[in-house]
């Protein structure tokens, strides 16, 4: 197990009743929001396994929705989020599924709007979470670090071009994970950094030829 912070053990300050099923759900929603960065027109929440079986009693359904619309884990709104006036016109549904290949507390956010995206993640315990997939690409986003995620055409030199831009700003890379569909096809890069990510870094990376999609994902505050 990877230890991260003392405050993984004594935190978050949160709305009950479950760190994995309530706070974890909110945090997954917040990360999905940070990745999608738009207001979806239609949302399907697919809950798997324990999330599906015991989620309702734990407010997992409420937490996922609240997070996706930017409410924090300690928000008093979560309890009555289904009656929240600002969400009245949002089209969202829940699907409850069983799939033993997935984590016990897994969810897919199927988001439709100007762009369509499916974001998958797990609640791994004590409120800690991971986004494991964006569409078909493997990612490792925990919300513990500020993270840059990009999709691009798989070809030599891409890692070096991206890391040069980051290095120029004197930013330390904490971790770097890459994945690809197949040689020469679309690849993904997930970079966790210490400190802040200036907007300049993102706009520079966007300018690299054959980069399709870049996001700066802010770490979760609590």
């Amino acid at each position: 197990m990877k230890q991260r912070s003392l405050f993984d053990v004594i935190s978050p300050i949160m709305t009950g009743p479950s760190s994995s099923h309530t706070a974890g759900a909110v945090r997954l929603g917040l990360l999905a929001r940070n990745i999608y960065k738009e207001t979806p027109k239609k949302i399907i929440f697919r809950l798997y396994n324990s999330f599906a079986q015991t989620g309702k009693g734990h407010g997992t359904d409420k937490g996922l929705l609240a997070g996706l619309f930017g409410y924090s884990v300690d928000s008093e709104k979560i309890k009555n989020i289904f009656n929240e006036p600002s969400l009245k016109n949002i089209n969202y549904t829940y699907e409850y599924l069983q799939n033993m290949d997935r984590h016990p507390n897994a969810v897919d956010f199927v988001l439709e709007g100007r762009i369509n995206m499916t974001i998958s993640g797990n609640s791994v315990g004590a409120g800690n979470v991971e986004i494991t997939k964006i569409d078909s690409f493997t990612t490792k986003i925990s919300g513990e670090y500020n993270t840059i995620i990009l999709f691009y055409k798989d070809k030599p030199g891409m890692i070096s071009r991206v890391s040069t831009i980051i290095q120029k700003e004197n930013i330390n890379i904490a971790s770097l994970d890459c994945d690809r569909n197949a040689r020469g096809q679309t690849a993904s890069m997930c970079i966790c950094v210490d400190g802040q990510i200036p907007p300049k870094v993102i706009s520079e990376i966007e300018k690299i030829e054959d980069v399709y999609f870049v996001r700066s994902i802010k770490k979760l505050e609590d």
């Binding site: 993984d8 053990v9 004594i10 978050p12 300050i13 009950g16 479950s18 760190s19």
Partner: peptide, 21 residues
């Protein structure tokens, strides 16, 4: 009891064990 009301608590280490510490 605050936890099961979906009110604010501190997970320590988890919400289901938030009363002890």
């Amino acid at each position: 009891e605050e936890n099961l009301r979906m009110n604010k608590i501190v997970a320590c280490p988890t919400a289901g064990s938030c009363g002890i510490v």
